[in-house]
Amino acid sequence: MSRAILVIGQSHVAAVRAAARARREADPDRTRTRVIHTIEPQYAPEVEGEGDAARFAPALVDTIRDQIDRHAPLVASASGGNVHNGFALIRHPRPYDFLLSDEDGPPLDPAAEPVTEALVRATLEAGLERDRIRLREIRRIAGEGVVQLESPPPLADGAIIAAQADAYFRNRGIAELGVAPAGLRYKIWRLHSRIVAGYCADLGLRFLPAPAEARDAQGFLRPDFAGDATHGNRAYGEAVIRALEAL
């Protein structure tokens, strides 16, 4: 594929940016992949207005449009992809768990409080309001053909997560509270992905699953594809770019 790629998002664009930089350094003439990180200071405030009237800031809109006008890229969105971690990376003081519907998943933790999937969905959806706006705005600006990237799966190993957790999770007490059970983290990531995929369907966007080569047999993120506790690394970004090129 010779078409340029533009990935718009927040923290998850770092993996793609690292892979794109490595590609460029290895072969300056190769078709470029570029990224726009929507919460970098030059775009602040990222979103203006509330609810249906919310819009990306003019500086951000101009940057996206400029990239599209100059390179006619395949536009992908790595927007969001963090809400599930906010709820389920750290072990909750009142442990909870739920069952996934419509697909196999880890069993209920018998020591945890059962919460229905509908309530976990409501919890996630309440936290996804900003991400919905981002998707809607990207669709409005870039038009049809935008591809939403599924967020990276969770790591299975809680020890790796505890060791690599960034300041946000360290400040919230991950060392004292511990890492949530892998089963819960996996299920809430799956449910998060299904909700986002539903938003994409409503907007007419394509939803691209996480690269298969980055996942282990149980569906977790392979450690060699992890950048830290919640993000992919350069190898993950490279796998994402290849998946986009294959579309």
Binding site: F87, H92, Y96, T116, L119, A122
Partner: peptide, 14 residues
């Protein structure tokens, strides 16, 4: 009680 992660309006609906 509803689990603390659950928004109040959702808890009431349930």
């Amino acid at each position: 009680t509803a689990h603390p992660i659950v928004p109040a309006d959702a808890a009431e609906r349930h």
